[in-house]
Amino acid sequence: MHDRLHLARVIRRATADCPPVEVPRRLCEALSRGLPVDAVTMSLLTDTPSRQLLCASNEMARVLEEVQFTVMEGPCIEAASTGEPVHATDLPAAAGRWPLFVAALHERCPDVAAVHAFPLWFGDYVLGSVDFACRAPGGMPADAVEQAAEAAEAAALALLPTQRMLLEDDDYPSWEPSDVVRAHWSDTHQAVSVVAARKRTSVATALALMRARAFATGRTLAEVTADILGS
C-alpha cells in the first residue's frame, strides 16, 4: 500500500502547477520511472476514430501505439471500450483474441512479451487508456500491477483539469514525440476527410479503408496518412 500511495504522490507532485501542455510528458516520465516496465503510452478516445495520442515514452511505446492505432485492436483499445484493466501477460497466447495486433507487434517489436492496459476514468466515463509494455515474460509482478492501477487513477486525475484543451484545441499540442503526436492528432483526421471526399463515403468507412491499406502493405497508418496528404 505504501508503494502505491508513493507513486500516486509522485504523479501529483510531478504535475502540480504544471502548464497543461507539459502534463502528458511528465506523466509518462513519472510512470516510466516508478514502475518496472519498459514502455509507457497514453491516449484519449482510444477506442474511437478520434483517438489522440498523449505520450509515448520511447521507441517501443511508439511502436505499440502505432500498431494498435493501425489495426484498431489490442489491450489499450479493449481497456478503453470495457472500462476494465487488460493484462496480456502472454502475447503469443493472445493471438486468438487480437490476431492483427499480435502479428504486427511481433513483426515490428518482438521484444515485447507482455502488455498491461488500464482505462483512464474521468468521473463516470472512460476517456482513454494507458499501456505498460514489458520485455519480461509474464509482465509486471502482482504488487506492481496494483501500483500501476493506482497510478492510472492518479494520471486520470492529473489530466482532468486539462481535458477541455486536450479535446477542443484546434492545433495538436507541442508534445513529444511531435511527429507521432501530429500524425495521431490532426494529420490522420485530415487524411480521413480527403479519402471520404474522394470515395464519396462516410468518415468511418474512409478510416477503415486506410487501416486496411496500412495492414495489407505492412505500413503504419501514419505512413499511409502521409501518402494521402502528399498526393
Rank of each mutant, 00 (worst) to 15 (best):
A204T: 14
E153H: 12
S57R: 07
V37S: 00
A30S: 15
A196K: 08
W98D: 01
A39C: 05
A104M: 13
L166R: 11
V145M: 10
R4E: 14
V145L: 15
M72E: 13
E59Q: 14
A56R: 09
M140P: 06
G128C: 02
E146R: 12
L91W: 05
I11C: 02
V40C: 08
Y172V: 11
E29P: 00
P99K: 06
P92H: 05
L159N: 04
P24M: 07
P85V: 03
P177F: 08
V63G: 01
L44R: 03
T89V: 11
T217E: 15
L91Q: 09
F69G: 11
E59A: 15
R33T: 06
P49K: 10
A149S: 14
I11A: 04
R9N: 13
A79H: 08
R200Q: 15
S186D: 14
E22A: 15
P20R: 07
V194W: 07
A148L: 07
L167H: 04
A95I: 07
H106W: 00
A136Y: 02
Y172C: 13
L105H: 01
L229A: 06
D169F: 14
V130T: 03
T89C: 07
F101G: 04
L157R: 13
V63S: 01
E59F: 07
S50W: 12
W98G: 01
Q147I: 13
A114H: 05
P24H: 08
F69Q: 11
S50Y: 12
Q52N: 13
W185Q: 12
R12W: 00
M42Q: 05
G74H: 10
V130R: 01
V192E: 05
R4D: 13
V195M: 11
T46E: 01
D143Q: 13
E73L: 08
A94Q: 12
T188C: 14
P110N: 08
A152E: 02
G83I: 07
S186R: 14
D171Y: 13
S174Y: 13
G218I: 07
D170M: 13
S32E: 02
V102D: 00
Q68G: 12
R9H: 13
L120N: 07
R26A: 03
P110D: 07
E153F: 02
T188N: 12
L120A: 02
V10G: 00
A156P: 06
E223G: 01
E29K: 01
E29A: 11
M60N: 00
A88P: 05
R62A: 15
T162A: 15
A196D: 07
G230T: 10
A144C: 06
A212E: 14
L91K: 04
G74W: 04
W175V: 13
E223C: 02
R211P: 06
P99Y: 03
S32Y: 01
L159S: 06
G128N: 03
C55T: 11
M1Y: 10
E150L: 10
M210L: 15
F215M: 15
D47P: 03
V203S: 13
L105P: 04
P36H: 09
A151I: 04
V194N: 00
L127W: 09
V71N: 04
H184M: 10
T41P: 00
L44Y: 05
H189G: 12
P161Y: 09
D90T: 02
V21F: 14
R219W: 03
L53P: 06
A16W: 12
E22R: 14
L35P: 06
T41M: 05
V63W: 00
H116D: 15
D143W: 08
P92W: 04
V192H: 06
